[in-house]
Design a protein around this nucleic acid. Structure first.
Lengths: 225, 225
DNA sequence: TGTACATCAGTGAACGCGCGTTCACTGATGTAC
DNA sequence: TGTACATCAGTGAACGCGCGTTCACTGATGTAC
């Protein structure tokens, strides 16, 4: 735990890595009490530091939350990217993996997810934040492009639209049913199943895959591997 | 304005209808500052009353917000119900109207919407709240049943699943793009169009309607009018 | 119709609390020579 | 290798503020007789 200074629980006058410690504190507190319940003073206490110390690293409470959200989007993008895996083993399966990764993130990284989507941050005022958020969405966007490219051109929808549909469906399911805090509604099936079924039906509607049959490897027509 | 007492701006020792005034205050304040920024003291001030007065009507701040959310769900259910209009003029069109009503509610009744979905209320502890929320969802559920009943039985999906898909898609689009506070992302099309297109593709995927053609009156096969 | 009284719905003063923020300060660290 | 000094990253005390909540109280209203 290099971020905690000496690592033996004690520390001297200097903390060693207060910035990181404050972010960890924020994650911990947001997870427990939500983004609204998180306070600057609490974070300082959690890090074992005076209440004035955080001002050396963050302009104010919002700046800290924004930094958490930015990191969250970066991590989110990484996870989605990893799940997409350049469309391997096959774009449709890979896209499903992206959906699962989306829900898994909302469940497992509740604190990040809250900071990203529920803290009421303004993306317009923070280019870094916006950029990180865009990078997350770009994964969905690119994946949609690959899927769209496989459709016969007369049925091909705009890839942007498809990615927005996928994003909205995943986000809706995550927000309503797959939050990690258990505070949401019960569901008669796993959120992942719900998302997968919905997306499958959607793709059938596009004519991307045969009706009532999940696609098998469709013989690689024109993938830009 | 019978809720404000004499209606001439002045009032005597008694307010007249403080309970309603506090709820109006909550809506106003939530709209301006979000559910997190809303305080009991603020509501009292807004209503022109001492900070102790609200305790005559609500146990605490959360009880007030819960009441706002409950009313919101009631109103929401009414709006969805009205849009569905018993499946007239035709179930598919009526379902689209429900979707539009969903997005319109999120945009126009931002304060209610926030209290309902973003205040972190626990539905388990408040039967009245849960019931009102269930009534909203029931509209989607019933509409889905009617739509499902029109499908050939070999293609008929569980109506519950379909309603969950519709709910999640609408909620995702509303949360990401159609919030009334302008704090969300830009979109190259109207949220309503995005939702409608998504749902259309979904229904095509179910085989409910012809591919690449919006449905015309499908000759009333077996509708329980 | 008038009066006495119970009940209700407010007041306003007070309290403790924790937060955000500032300030002069000081201990620790790194670097030039 | 040692020393002087600049810079950095903390301290802790203090401040004003607004919130939530309680309390004894009091003005207004409704009702029984």
């Amino acid at each position: 735990m290099s971020w905690a200074g000496r690592g033996d629980g004690r520390r001297g006058y200097h903390h060693g890595n207060l910035r990181e410690a404050l972010i960890k504190a924020a994650l911990d507190l947001i997870e427990k009490k939500g983004p609204a319940g998180f306070t600057f003073a609490d974070a300082a206490r959690w890090a074992g530091v005076s209440s004035a110390a955080p001002y050396r690293h963050f302009r104010d409470r919002d700046a800290l939350i924004a930094d958490v959200a930015r990191r969250g989007f970066d991590l989110f993008a990484d996870r989605l990217e990893h799940a997409w895996n350049d469309g391997r083993p096959e774009p449709f399966t890979a896209f499903e993996n992206v959906g699962r990764a989306y829900l898994a993130f909302a469940r497992e990284e509740l604190a990040y997810y809250s900071a990203m989507f529920e803290a009421g941050l303004s993306f317009d005022d923070d280019p870094g934040l916006r950029q990180a958020a865009d990078r997350s969405f770009a994964v969905l966007r690119r994946a949609s492009e690959v899927l769209c490219a496989r459709l016969p051109s007369d049925k091909r929808p705009p890839a942007l639209m498809m990615s927005l549909h996928a994003w909205a469906l995943a986000h809706g399911i995550a927000s309503l049913f797959a939050r990690g805090d258990g505070g949401r509604r019960r569901l008669p099936m796993a959120p992942e199943e719900l998302l997968e079924a919905g997306f499958l039906i959607y793709l059938q509607g596009l004519g991307a895959i045969a009706q009532n049959a999940p696609p098998e490897q469709p013989a690689e027509p024109s993938s830009p591997s």
